[in-house]
Design a protein around this nucleic acid. Structure first.
Lengths: 144, 144
DNA sequence: CTCCTAGTTGCAACTCATTCTCAGGAGCCT
DNA sequence: AGGCTCCTGAGAATGAGTTGCAACTAGGAG
């Protein structure tokens, strides 16, 4: 079994069906990219990777499919620092992001303490939190 | 003294000079808008308001001036939920934002506790925080 | 297995925020 | 006042993302 984390076809199809979409080879290529990605690719990167599996995937289909998956809540979207929209499967545990401003490297983290404080602050203002965005733009601590 | 918080010309000019720019009537109009705004206008809104004072301000000048002020650190920028870029003077105390997803109303808040936790998390990963973005997307708690 | 149709696709044209180009205008130092 | 730069408005250009459209196809009905 020397597979390189190539996701099973059943997972791929399940993701597409969850969004209420028909199974097509273009969507399978896109879904597989998302299932196999551990990072946060943008639409162009998803398109590029999907074309490795099926060269016929068009830009329009990539954008359209990503939009539907995001709308159905199957994908989370991020626009770090006003850049392009990046995607990530939403079936994973919640987390926030730390962005290395020098390398662009993204580290994920969670803090139940911060989450709790957020809910308290919102309640104090008469609100309940529907979603939140917490991004830390950081620099490696110079060890000198 | 029935002024409607019309900022003094000296403040307006000081802001422009701080950015290393020459004083022009277009920039004065833009700077005055920023000094008089308590909200988070985007470039088009700044342009529209600036034209009340000087109808000759062009879109290009609005974008250019805002870009320089932001670059010099005199303005903070926000792109709530992947929308357009919004501006706000940065000489005010630090704060984060709570966005009412139904009305679009923005409430500002601060939490030194959250800030402290953020620094701790970053340090644990070998980073120091250069900037951060914390946005809470909320809904009014239904009192029913 | 074939048919049929609503759902899909690629392509190119389009939108919209933002940036750039350029030729004519104006600060401001002296 | 002179003039070297910096600025300006108009419009063209850019780039991410969207959409119209005619051809194509998934997949349920028969």
């Amino acid at each position: 079994m020397e597979e390189e984390l190539a996701s099973e076809t059943e997972d791929v199809d399940a993701l597409i069906r969850s969004a209420g979409l028909r199974i097509t080879k273009q969507r399978q290529a896109i879904a597989r990219v998302l299932l196999d990605s551990g990072d946060h690719p943008d639409a162009e990167e998803v398109l590029e990777r999907a074309r490795d599996e099926d060269a016929s995937v068009s830009q329009a289909t990539a954008y359209r499919t990503l939009a539907v998956l995001a709308e159905k809540g199957l994908l989370d979207t991020h626009t770090f620092d006003g850049g392009v929209t990046r995607f990530e499967l939403s079936d994973r545990p919640h987390h926030d992001h730390m962005i290395d401003i020098e390398s662009g490297k993204i580290t994920e983290f969670v803090s139940s303490e911060i989450e709790k404080l957020q809910r308290e602050i919102a309640r104090r203002h008469g609100y309940e939190i529907v979603a939140h965005r917490l991004e830390l733009y950081c620099r490696k601590i110079d060890p000198s």
